[in-house]
Nucleic acid binder design. Structure first.
Lengths: 205, 205
DNA sequence: CTCTTGATGTTTACAGTGTCTACATTATAC
DNA sequence: GTATAATGTAGACACTGTAAACATCAAGAG
């Protein structure tokens, strides 16, 4: 840690690589990211990363996991803050969009050619499923339970709402048009959508 | 065209490159696509593509345009077939999903790091906007007009419906879970969603 | 019909990349 | 302290995008 010149061993290279790599992807974009740049950014030779990752793909996966973790923590904070209130769904949707607006490269990085697994029907072990989705699903289900929403339809509601927010985020982060005030728009959209799924739950939201 | 051995000039290289390249991307995926493979697939030297495209990026753009054209034609057929019927929106949604399910690599290829422009608020010249979106928007607006839907809300409805379909497609083509019968699911989702936006239009749909 | 010219394709070259192998240095355990 | 495993380095290879110099062809002008 100190200024000792004998930093032959980095001792934290794995994490450093992940974080520096995310920085590079954020600033230069995925296409121009390379293992060698990452190594150089960590002040290490170009083959050093191979002591910590089998190949480039595995580093990319680790980066995606790291981002997903931060994203999950953010959503957990929102849940903790708004749990039980009528604005929980809206706040989660807003956070979803906000996260990817603040980090414009993350959306395509996370959701394309990644090995992130989103099992919408949750047939795989919960731990292996995409955590943001599980968090979202749990929140929605608990609301649906409160209002005794038909059990066999609950999953479709969850998937539909998620698809909607996901689609909005995709469009807003991709289209070259910046919504002057996207928060308002997203809020409007969610307000517009909720009654469709939650007809008999208006009071609860 | 004939078997003449003097095919020094390919004479249709530009199109051949686009189509072969799309084949390569379809079968091997975007990451393993290279200019040199494309050239080889056309039986031409590795620098030949530079007579038709400034760089790799421009070839990729041409490929995206080509796919978008085919997609647009498909949507136009759907519109011609179902225009004025109550199932137009549903059929367009199904076609949207179907197109990307049949070509699993296309979704991320078209919608990430492409220079496709989708101006949701349509402030750019119509010709420059993403044609599938314009087709979809025109169809929806005409339905909304028929039922005298409030003019100032029409655009939000269009964007919301599009985001929903787009989000579903993104999830269905990305998540590792194959819906056993996704058509039914998508139909259900659309049925579930429409009333939210089109409360006073039920008859027209 | 020849000759010029522009369009198209080839060859060669170079820097950057992912990845492997052999080697060097260090930390750790006995 | 020394063996051993963990970690970093150096060099090599094949492949990539791209550029420059050269080759071949098509088409029109005289």
């Amino acid at each position: 840690m100190q200024d000792k010149k004998k930093d032959y061993h980095h001792k934290n290279l794995r994490n450093a690589l992940i974080e520096k790599s995310i920085e590079i992807v954020s600033s230069e974009g995925v296409p121009s990211f390379s293992l060698r740049k990452a190594a150089a950014a960590c002040g290490v030779s170009h083959a050093a990363p191979y002591r910590h990752f089998q190949n480039k793909e595995q580093l990319l996966s680790a980066m995606q996991e790291h981002i997903t973790d931060r994203f999950s923590i953010l959503l957990e904070e929102i849940i903790k803050k708004y749990e039980g209130t009528p604005v929980l769904l809206k706040q989660m949707g807003l956070s979803y969009v906000a996260f990817f607006i603040e980090n414009p490269t993350y959306f395509s990085f996370l959701y394309t050619q990644s090995d992130i697994v989103i099992d919408l029907q949750c047939q795989i072990p919960e731990k292996e499923n995409y955590r943001p989705y599980m968090l979202y699903k749990t929140a929605v289900i608990s609301i649906l339970e409160q209002v005794h929403y038909p059990l066999e339809k609950q999953n479709d509601v969850v998937i539909s709402l998620w698809a909607f927010i996901h689609g909005i985020t995709s469009l807003v982060t991709m289209s070259n048009v910046r919504y002057e005030n996207w928060e308002q728009k997203v809020t409007d959209f969610i307000d517009m959508l909720q009654p469709a799924f939650l007809k008999n739950t208006e009071g609860a939201l």
